[in-house]
Amino acid sequence: MITKKKVRAPLSPEIRRSNAKKKEKVRFVLSQTGMYLVLVLFALLILIPFIFAVSTSFTSPENIFDFKWIPSPVDIGNYDKLFSENNVWGAFLNTFLYTVPTTIIGTFCSALCAYSCARMKWPGRRIVYYLILATMVIPGVITLMPSYVLFVNFYRWYGTPLPIIIPGMFGSAGAMFFLHQYFKTLPKELEEAAEIDGTGRLRIFLTIILPLSIPAVLTQFILAFNGAYNDYMTPLLYVGTNPDLFTIQLLVSGLSTSHNKQYTLLMAGAITALLPTFVLYVACQRFFVDGIAMTGLKE
C-alpha cells in the first residue's frame, strides 16, 4: 500500500485532476449508455406489439403461420373485409355523434362551474366546490347497476344512445377541478375593468376568461373526448344489442366472436379503432402531456 502511494505521489496536481476528470467522464458516459439502453428497451417493448399488430393486419390469413415483420406480399384483404362486411363508417359516425357534442357541451359546463367557484362570490360556493370534489372519490361501480335500471325503467332511454350522450353534457368534476386550478392563477385585474364598465359575468367569461384559457380548456376537451371515444362499457350496456347504433369500439369487439378469432382481421379492426385517437395524440401531444402532468401536480 505504502509503496503504491509513493509511486503515485510524484504525479503533479494537474495530471491528477485531469485523471479524475477522465474517470468522471467515463462514469458519466457509462451511466448515460446504461440509462439509454433501459429506455430504448422499454420503448421497444411498447412499440413492438403495435408493429406486430400492424404487420399482421397486412398479412393474408393464409400466410399468418409464416409471419414476417414486413409482410410480403402486403395484403389489404383484411381491411377490405372489415369495411365491406361491417358498417365501419356508420360506427365511426355514431361514435362521433355520441362523443363530440357531449364533450364540447360538457367541457363548457365544467368550465362555467369552475369559473363560478374560482372567481365569483356567492353564498355556499366553497361547500358546493368541495362537495363536487368529493364526488370524485365515489367508485363508479356503485352507480353502474342503479343507473342502468333508472335509464331503462325511469328515463326509458333503453335502446337509444341517450344514456351515452346526456350525462356527459353536464360536465365532470375532474375537468371542473382542473380548470378551477387554472382560473385561480389568472390575475384579478382582468375582470375588474370589465366589471366597472358594467359587462355581465357571462360576457366576461366568454370574451375574457375563456379565450385566455384555451390551452387548459382544450386539454380537458381532448382528454374527455379521448375517454368517451374509447369507452366500451356504456355503449355496450345501452346500444349493445342494436348494430345500427354501434360505436366503433362495439363493432370491433364484436369481430372476435362473429369471426371466430381470425387474428389478421382482428388486428385490422384494432388498428382501425385506435387510429383516430392515435392521430389526435400525435397532433396534439402537448395537450395530453400537460393535462395528465397537471392533474397529478395539483393533487
Binding site: L47, A53, L280
Partner: peptide
C-alpha cells in the same frame, strides 16, 4: 411520448393486440 401511446388507444384495441401477442 412513446411510452404514453398505449394510454390513448382504447382498451378494446389493446386487448385484441395482446390476445394476439
Amino acid at each position: 411520448s412513446i411510452l404514453y401511446i398505449p394510454t390513448v388507444c382504447g382498451a378494446v384495441a389493446i386487448t385484441f393486440v395482446w390476445s394476439w401477442v
